[in-house]
Write a protein that binds this DNA or RNA. Structure first.
Length: 228
DNA sequence: GCGACAG
DNA sequence: ATCTTGTCGC
């Protein structure tokens, strides 16, 4: 099987975005959430066409997980995908969608990493800082760090750490025998909160409800968008 | 120098 | 992410 090949990225663009990322990093704050959230949001982005991005945000009541609201926004793709700089490609459009929300959430669950990132600035941290809102990431694939495979039973957890032993996140088995999820805090959130909320949002599926529903509606809107 | 690389 | 059929396991 072939290894994915990433086309060469413009060195100047990489330098610029990386510097901006370092600036944002200085604003990240990892703290426990003071109280139980009443509303939790989930977000997801997809690409109906190579040059169009569609972002969906859903808000669920917590802990019932009833859907309260869903919004979306689509626009032109302006930045290529570059490992470690994903947020600059997707976050701008997510922020536009966020502006359409009427019910402000207490915390945001993002499809991607929080601080489990080479520079501790995954898209969950990026969005959290931009919105000054508690946020954490739930990713399906590892970006950086090492871990030992957690047991195959739902709820099993193993730490994700970097070379120096620093805790970057936790690898969680969200369902028996499915690939684990990578959960890490993004901003105004700590690991315990990120893990606790992720587990509290599981409803028999691999993905926690906020992300799963955002994914679902993204697919719906995508069809609707291509048909117009 | 050689791999690895969220969505 | 996206393009895509059938297939193996619970």
């Amino acid at each position: 099987m072939y290894r994915p090949y990433h086309p060469p990225a413009d060195p100047l663009l990489v330098r610029e975005l990386t510097q901006t990322q370092e600036q944002l990093r200085g604003h990240v704050r990892l703290l426990p959430l003071g109280h139980e959230p009443q509303f939790i949001a989930g977000c997801d982005s997809s690409f109906p066409t190579p040059e169009t991005i569609l972002s969906v945000l859903v808000v669920l009541r917590f802990p019932s997980l009833d859907l309260v609201e869903k919004v979306w926004h689509s626009g032109p793709v302006e930045v290529p995908y570059i490992p470690g700089l994903l947020s600059f490609r997707e976050a701008p459009n997510v922020l536009r969608a966020y502006e359409k929300l009427r019910q402000q959430p207490d915390i945001l669950m993002v499809d991607g990493h929080g601080i489990a990132h080479p520079r501790r600035m995954g898209i969950a941290a990026h969005l959290g800082v931009m919105l000054d809102l508690p946020a954490f990431g739930v990713a399906k694939q590892r970006l950086t760090g090492t871990f030992t495979e957690p047991a195959l039973t739902k709820g099993s957890i193993s730490p994700l750490t970097d070379k120096s032993g620093e805790l970057l996140g936790e690898v969680i088995r969200s369902k028996d025998k499915v690939n684990p999820l990578f959960v890490s805090p993004g901003h105004r959130c700590d690991q315990a909160t990120a893990t606790r909320l992720t587990l509290a949002c599981l409803r028999g599926y691999k993905l926690p409800e906020p992300t799963r529903l955002a994914d679902h509606w993204a697919e719906e809107f995508k069809q609707e968008l291509r048909a117009s």
